[in-house]
Simulated assay, not measured.
Amino acid sequence: MSQDPEKVNMPRPELFDFHGVSMTRLFTDNWEEVQNFEARPDDILIATYPKAGTTWVSYILDLLYFGQTCPERQTTIPIFERVPFLEIFVPNLISGKDQAENLPTTPRLIKTHFPVQFVPKSFWEQNCKVVYVARNAKDNMVSYFYFSCMSQLQPEPGDWSSFFQKFLEGNCM
């Protein structure tokens, strides 16, 4: 079993420009392995902006696909293991890519916050289903700000005014 990446104690990451996108090393240190991920034709990719409903949609899809045949998984396996976060790489924990590869389910439900140009090409080559989730930008920004204040895996958000400006300029992870 892996550990919830949000529960790991480590210094906050720094934001940097990665091929024109603001990122942290938690999403780029495993870049080559993630880009070489081998999707299967029945994989389902949940693609969202952070704090736009990723977990909500993950629960819904997991229930739709496995709720009748394997209801105990809802109470015995945490959602971050049932629907791994493809690009996350926290040192000393199993990577999201490795979790996704080892999923015993068919289809495999996999989530990402990558922009479309960073999604591994195998998802397109295998013609996988993609569930894209968008949320009202104002609601998304408020949720993302409070999440960033709480989560040590996020860069320091600063005060509301500076976060607001960074969000509008696209300078958030």
Rank of each mutant, 00 (worst) to 15 (best):
V131P: 01
P120K: 05
F123N: 03
R135M: 03
C128R: 03
Y144D: 06
S148R: 05
F147I: 01
N127G: 11
N140M: 14
K121M: 09
Y132L: 12
F118Q: 04
V116G: 00
Q117E: 13
V142F: 09
V142R: 09
E125P: 00
R135C: 09
A137T: 13
S143M: 08
K138A: 10
V119K: 03
F118K: 07
C128G: 10
Y132C: 13
K129L: 11
K138V: 09
V116L: 14
Q117P: 00
V130E: 02
N140P: 00
K121L: 10
F147N: 04
F123L: 03
K129R: 14
F147S: 03
F147C: 02
W124L: 11
V142A: 11
V131E: 06
V142G: 06
K121S: 13
C128K: 08
S143E: 07
F123Y: 08
K129P: 00
D139M: 07
W124F: 15
K129V: 05
K138W: 00
V119P: 01
K129E: 13
F123R: 01
Q126K: 15
F118D: 01
S148M: 08
P120Q: 07
R135I: 05
A134K: 09
V130A: 11
P120T: 05
A137N: 03
S143A: 14
E125K: 15
F118I: 00
M141Y: 04
N140G: 11
Y144K: 04
Y132D: 00
V133L: 12
Q117H: 15
Y132T: 12
F118C: 02
C128V: 07
V133T: 12
F145W: 12
F118P: 01
A137V: 13
F145D: 03
D139P: 09
Y144G: 02
A137C: 12
A137M: 06
K138E: 12
P120M: 04
Q126L: 00
W124R: 14
D139A: 07
V142D: 08
W124I: 12
S122L: 02
A137D: 02
M141V: 05
Q126S: 12
A134V: 14
N127S: 14
Q126C: 12
S122W: 04
V116Y: 13
V142N: 09
E125Y: 10
N140L: 14
E125C: 06
M141L: 13
S148H: 06
V130N: 00
V133H: 04
F123W: 08
Q117I: 02
V142E: 09
D139I: 05
N127L: 10
P120A: 07
M141E: 07
K129S: 13
S148K: 06
V130H: 01
K121Y: 00
A134R: 09
F123V: 02
D139H: 07
V130K: 12
E125Q: 15
F123K: 01
Q117L: 04
F118R: 03
A134L: 10
S148N: 07
A134S: 15
R135W: 04
V142I: 15
F145L: 04
K138I: 09
V119D: 01
Y146F: 15
